[in-house]
Design a protein around this nucleic acid. Structure first.
Length: 318
DNA sequence: AGCGAGCCCTGCGCGC
DNA sequence: TGCGCGCAGGGCTCGC
């Protein structure tokens, strides 16, 4: 499911319920969801039981709950299909429930944290907190400058106040790869997945395979600005839901799907030029783009790949 | 360095 | 009704 806006929606939903809460019980229904936990399901539960949660923190698509008075945190990654839901303690188990954590919340009293995950690409783990390299708050939701060790290699995301724009632009210019591949590289910039990469590229009128080296600095800055804009707007809408796979902590859908311009829009008219949005396979996934608005630079374009010239559609000057 | 392939998985909707 | 196929918001590791 989840990219930055969806994970942030979950984090913001958890924050008031879990901050200061005591963990009273842990039930692991599928140990495959602990793939990234060093230890067994028993050590996972034993270590959490009785601890207190200090905050709900996020960097990119990673979420963690620091355990007060320790150098440890409960880390969650939602993978493609993970959810974290707040449930009443007497609520029945969700169908695809993998881990259930009982807490006593200062605000809401007894609650269950349900980790639900269809494909089990997501995970939970208890991990060491280590100092960040740049001494700024490690993620959104806390001023703490410690980060889980398994998240330490993840770059800051574009909405992080400590995101180093100059460093990102320099690293992008140094890279010898296609621009979408760069956007999906979580060690370069985090939080961006297939939806928002396609949306930002559409907004910046860039072909997904445009070599990063061919981007002028203004074009790269425009791409970053469009990326921030689309992430911000999606966050305001509570994220993108296509089905019940992505919901917030209360089980509600996000509404950004109604505002998508590229992702999943194949065959529909481009909102700029009216020509049909195309879908093509890329990196074992799909890329959605407007073949007219998002053309490769001439220097790297195969001769036969010129799209049809602007004879019909509206806004033909795009 | 970068990159493609493979792997980790389940479930849903579709066409036959 | 049933089966096979393609599809899905991610990320890690391994070879070349």
């Amino acid at each position: 499911m989840p990219e930055l806006p969806e994970v942030e929606t979950v984090r913001a939903g958890l924050e008031p319920a879990v901050t200061g809460a005591r963990i009273t019980g842990v039930r692991v229904l599928d140990t495959r969801s602990l793939r990234r936990h060093v230890g067994t399901a028993d050590t996972f539960g034993d270590e959490l039981a009785g601890t207190r949660i200090g905050a709900a923190v996020r960097r990119g698509k990673f979420l963690w709950l620091p355990l007060t008075g320790t150098d440890r945190a409960l880390v969650a990654h939602l993978g493609m299909s993970g959810q974290v839901l707040l449930r009443a303690v007497d609520a029945p188990d969700d169908r695809l429930l993998r881990v259930r954590i009982e807490i006593g919340s200062p605000v809401h009293g007894p609650l269950s944290l349900a980790f639900v995950d269809q494909r089990i690409f997501g995970s939970m783990a208890v991990d060491d907190l280590v100092p960040v390299a740049d001494a700024a708050p490690a993620g959104r939701g806390s001023e703490d400058t410690r980060i889980p060790s398994q998240v330490a290699h993840i770059a800051r995301d574009p909405l992080d106040p400590a995101f180093d724009e100059r460093r990102f632009l320099a690293a992008l210019a140094r890279k010898n790869t296609g621009v979408k591949r760069a956007l999906l590289d979580q060690t370069l910039v985090s939080g961006v997945g297939n939806i928002y990469a396609d949306e930002a590229l559409w907004a910046a009128r860039l072909h997904f395979e445009a070599p990063t080296a061919t981007l002028s600095r203004p074009r790269a800055k425009l791409l970053l600005a469009e990326l921030r804009l689309v992430l911000t707007r999606a966050l305001e809408d509570g994220g993108t839901s296509f089905d019940a796979q992505y919901v917030n902590v209360n089980g509600a859908s996000g509404y950004f799907a109604q505002r998508l311009n590229a992702y999943g829009q194949q065959g529909k008219e481009c909102a700029r030029c009216g020509r049909p949005i195309a879908r093509t396979s890329f990196m074992n996934r799909s890329s959605h783009y407007c073949p007219w608005c998002q053309r490769l630079p001439r220097a790297v374009r195969p001769d036969h790949a010129d799209p049809t010239p602007p004879t019909g559609g509206r806004n033909a000057t795009w």
